[in-house]
Design a protein around this nucleic acid. Structure first.
Lengths: 242, 242
DNA sequence: CGTACGTTTGAGACTCCTCAATTTCTGTGG
DNA sequence: CCACAGAAATTGAGGAGTCTCAAACGTACG
């Protein structure tokens, strides 16, 4: 599960091929690894934002508390993801980030990005691609959350996770680990945990998927994609201007 | 209303001060102005994405059609905004863009950004800031749309527009033009036009605002902000790493 | 002045929420 | 290995918010 090569180099590699020297340049950014416990908070909304990080092991999520005390989950981070890049131009964190399970991160100071901007237009383009891609995921979610039924939302989220995991691991079958409680799913989807439970039960009875103890087994990927209104794959659509 | 100086230079200027040569460099990017009619489509989802543009006059919006035929409005662009920057790393347009009223745009080829990346780390940082800021607006909207009541959504959107207009025009009073029909508002908020009408009527009866023929008059800004759960001003929070 | 579009209002239906009780799972210590 | 406590998930009942459909009204524009 753990990333072998430098986490950031692998992640950037999804957006375009890297030369050996570019790879080294990215490797040099990463600070020493830090092991994080389950539930540990990386930073909180409003904290000073001076660095971002890569997640080399474990899942994490970003969230905000609303005025009524409910929590909204904005992003779910998988092993290999870059966390907090979008906060580069901001003084303060726009959202909190916490671990869903034990894992490992490496910090990178925002200032180090300036070195990239100065030295490598190519890596700069890749930074832009990483950031734009996360933005595309967000707007995709915006559409799916604001206008669709509970069934569609749940199907969409599970399928998005499935697709992203598959990009990291070609060999991934239709049965995989998802360390999210129904409370987490509800907070990410803008639903009540009760209704998430009912929806998952319905899916199970219809033979779309099974879910138990942090695992999801997708029985009918096509039906799930159709229920979630998945419209093609964002990953196939990236094409850096060279 | 029309932007005097180069549109992109003014827009970038919000995110950090520009030297004279940086300003010239940005000016040089912009193509010849093109006048667009009300309702005219700049590009459609799926079109090849080779350029972005600045909007020097008029309002525009980006949208996607869902499988059930409804339209979702993702972004609303005001005079002075940059449109489509986030699609730089993508082959195809992720959403369509159309004019809400007659206006003027200037195209910029995505390739020209590479010149910026190569020549000016400072402008590169600003590009990043512009893009990240739009992403922050999106995630703000994600939170507001997925979990809040119709009253909160409507109040939030009107207040966001009010704040953004005020940034462009210090002298803006509490009465301003909003060329959006209730159908547009509904499509942006994930509500039915009928319910938007009811909500606006309620606000009018409560003395929060008046709305008629493309104009909005905010009678009680504080109450509206409170209803919309506005949590500080994103614009105040930008701080480029120098 | 007629037509088209946008807005308002009413009625009934449906989705999802809240609250509360019960069951199942998970981890811990005996 | 079992008993227990705490957390997570399920189930039921009733209610709030928003939707859809349909009709009436207002406004802008040819």
């Amino acid at each position: 599960m753990e990333q072998q090569e430098s986490c950031i180099a692998q992640h950037f590699g999804y957006y375009g091929s890297l030369s050996e020297s570019e790879r080294r340049q990215l490797d040099a950014l990463e600070g020493p690894p830090a092991v994080m416990a389950k539930g540990e908070v990386l930073w909180r909304e409003g904290d000073a934002a001076r660095d971002f990080c890569t997640l080399s092991r474990g899942w994490a999520y970003s969230f905000r508390y609303l005025e009524d005390g409910t929590r909204h989950i904005l992003e779910i981070f998988l092993p290999g993801d870059v966390i907090g890049l979008r906060e580069f131009p901001f003084k303060e964190r726009l959202s909190s980030v916490a671990m869903l399970e034990e894992g490992k991160i490496r910090l990178i100071a925002h200032r180090r990005l300036l070195d990239i901007f100065r030295d490598s237009p190519r890596l700069t383009s890749l930074c832009f691609a990483v950031s734009s891609y996360q933005q595309a995921l967000l707007s995709e979610r915006l559409v799916h959350l604001s206008r669709r039924s509970a069934r569609q939302r749940v199907a969409y989220l599970l399928f998005e996770l499935f697709s992203r995991l598959k990009r990291n691991d070609e060999a991934l079958g239709d049965c995989f680990r998802v360390p999210l409680s129904q409370q987490h799913l509800a907070d990410a989807l803008g639903l009540s945990p009760v209704h998430v439970s009912r929806t998952l039960t319905a899916f199970r009875q219809e033979g779309l998927l099974k879910r138990a103890r942090g695992w999801v087994h997708i029985l009918d990927p096509q039906a799930l994609a159709s229920e979630g209104c998945i419209s093609g794959n964002l990953y196939d659509d990236i094409d850096l201007v060279e």
